[in-house]
Design a protein around this nucleic acid. Structure first.
Lengths: 394, 394
DNA sequence: TCGTGATATGTAAACGTTTACATCGCCTTC
DNA sequence: GAAGGCGATGTAAACGTTTACATATCACGA
């Protein structure tokens, strides 16, 4: 709690010299520096960041604005941002739970003076104008935005590509009547996944049938509830694509209760590849989303602004994870599938057979050395197909 | 990016008046205030937090120091802190991945001037002296500390109580030879869970047998690996208590591979009640840890310092979640169990039969309204027994 | 011996607020 | 009508840094 003045006095130098020792902005004799350091140690001195920021107009802090902190997804995004920020010697100031763009702007504003910029995930109803306003005073990078904002870099999940790949997979397995349970209407992920589903059907010449599109809200309960409606459809669909894994879990539960065999009577697929997906029975075929990379990449984009020209809009690749819930879970079958896919798809696909059984995931990072950066989630006997991004989301 | 000066000029008042309008520190005529506000809106002015902090010596920011960000556990702790912080109008500055207490002190120091205090989860090898040093310059609240630090409030998980309750449950089911797979030695949670296990055995007059204590490291792989050793023990144990759920998952996998029936041939229990636990087959009997509450409570302790006297050291209660992996999963049996427990235990136990099937958990908080504060994780047909804390951890 | 340049250090003005204190009107009150 | 009080506003000094500029010191060559 000592100030630079006291240290200067104790060391018998001016405050400028002390400042120079700590900021490294100019040369100081090693002898003088030593005197300063020992005086500082004595007084338990450390430069006051607020004063520093005021003077330099830099904070070395990055603001992170999120709609809400919940579940593995956000946790991983934050972890990705945090890890990468640490590497770049930045600290992160978090503010979450912003329901609408007004709250959003207020939060961004209230960070003024204590951050150098912002990585933001906008609420569902984001308005580009709100972002543009914020952007006038600091650099912003968006995660998974609804719309492009001029001059604003962004990184998104490959929802569209993932949904296309998954739906193609189902078609390849012979399904023609494929239902889908959607996420909330106003959710961008849900929107793009639905778009991908429709595109793949169209591309395969399967006529769209709106009765096969069932409303959901990303909760397990809504997945559970939708089974009654699916079973009521005539002719009955042979496969269901749930727009996220939680709903797929609900589906599986309800189907078990209804004694419908999966994948025998009905194939089920999800999206996200949450850790639980591989432990379900049958294990869930789904699309892996790398949320850690999402945060990581957002920070990278922020730290290294583009040299010139326009905004960068990146989409992260997803991976099709083939497990048991849609049948055909053996590698040989997938190999065929993968080839077939490449035929009418210019994506470069890779197949990966991951190792068994444990993957070192841990719930409690308190113990032992931390796991390295963006580690793989092990998948018990899953077939993995990388999905490069060639389409633009949104 | 306008400053108070420009606003003052534009509004035709002094900077003091503008300041008063924004800080509410003194009365300003409504007419003047309106003039100031309109000038500010015109210039896109918002008070600079750094300057404010420098002047007032308050930041309205809380520092959060964590050893690492990983998995549901940390995510929930942070969410708890963040939500509560928001209610108290605080922002949180996060810095994670501190392997040792030196890095820890450096991180705390580097936040000086930009935070009002600290909520910290110390790395495994925390030294009280490091904390004490930090505490000289700001108020600190510890999460799950190894040791008591004088004058430092803290909140911990009821690891000991939870492990005692779980072990008692196994004993009540008739098991006498109960093995345990421990967490890493230097981990405080692991340490207290082991202590609880031993205490319950001793209390039941079961002789300790060190061969039944198998080393693990909280990873699924180590759970998997320990099965070989368990099956080699003579006489073979009839139950295993894994110190966390991930290891229990590994155990279940290996037991299935070895064609050992669970719970028939071997009962398996875990700790933490991660979301996945209820979906395993058999569903896992475990102890629920409320990590959201951990963060939430830490913030509360921090915001409202104790009036006088000594440090507050709280331990959060855990809940025994009885599912299928140890047998006797029906309510009637549990009722008996719960009573039996109360006989030699002064804890007040409550039984809760939770509802089926979905609980509205969501992976993607982006959509719709955020779930309310500390919501319950639904447990499919689980018996829940609250575990009040009467013992001090560590 | 002096000038010259390089190098280390000191001086003081900024950075954008808050706030104690001073000032200025205006309303009461006698 | 002067004194007193009060409420709104202004003035200026902090808060703890950084940094442009000034100064001091020293080495060195002419």
């Amino acid at each position: 709690m000592a100030t630079i003045k006291e240290v200067a006095q104790a060391a018998g130098v001016s405050i400028a010299t002390v400042s120079r020792v700590y900021s490294g902005s100019a040369k100081v004799t090693e002898e003088t520096a030593a005197r300063v350091r020992s005086a500082a140690a004595m007084l338990d001195y450390w430069p006051n960041s607020a004063a520093r920021s005021l003077s330099t107009n830099r904070t070395h802090v990055l603001g992170v604005l999120l709609p809400d902190l919940f579940g593995e997804f956000f946790s991983e995004v934050i972890r990705g941002i945090d890890r990468e920020a640490r590497r770049e010697r930045f600290q992160i100031l978090i503010s979450s739970s912003h329901a609408n763009s007004e709250e959003f702007v207020v939060a961004a504003r209230s960070m003024r003076g204590r951050i150098d910029g912002l990585v933001a995930m906008t609420p569902d109803s984001d308005s580009p104008s709100a972002i543009e306003q914020i952007q006038r005073s600091m650099r912003v990078v968006l995660i998974n935005p609804w719309t492009a904002v001029p001059g604003c870099d962004s990184v998104s999940i490959g929802n569209f590509d993932g949904a296309v790949a998954l739906t193609r997979h189902l078609i390849r397995l012979g399904h023609r009547r494929i239902a889908t349970v959607t996420g909330p209407q106003e959710n961008i992920d849900a929107y793009n996944r639905l778009r991908g589903y429709r595109t793949a059907l169209e591309e395969a010449g399967i006529e769209a049938d709106d009765r096969l599109v069932l409303p959901g809200d990303f909760t397990e309960a809504s997945g559970y509830a939708s089974v009654a409606r699916i079973l009521g459809l005539r002719p009955r669909p042979t496969a269901v694509f749930a727009a996220n894994d939680y709903m797929a879990i609900g589906l599986l539960g309800a189907l078990r209760d209804a004694r419908i065999a999966v994948p025998g009577d009905l194939a089920v697929a999800g999206f996200d590849d949450i850790p639980m997906a591989q432990y379900l029975s049958p294990a869930l075929t789904t699309v892996r989303v790398d949320s850690y990379a999402l945060g990581q990449r957002a920070l990278q984009l922020w730290v290294r602004p583009d040299a010139g020209n326009g905004a960068r809009r990146e989409t992260l690749p997803t991976r099709l994870i083939v497990r048991g819930s849609c049948g055909e879970a053996n590698p040989a079958a997938c190999e065929r599938g993968s080839r077939a896919m490449s035929d009418h798809d210019n994506a470069e696909n890779r197949r990966i057979q991951e190792s068994e059984p444990g993957d070192g995931r841990r719930q409690d990072g308190k113990s032992g050395p931390a796991p390295a950066g963006n580690q793989e989630t092990g998948a018990r006997g899953s077939i993995v197909v990388d999905q490069e991004s060639h389409h633009e989301d949104a």
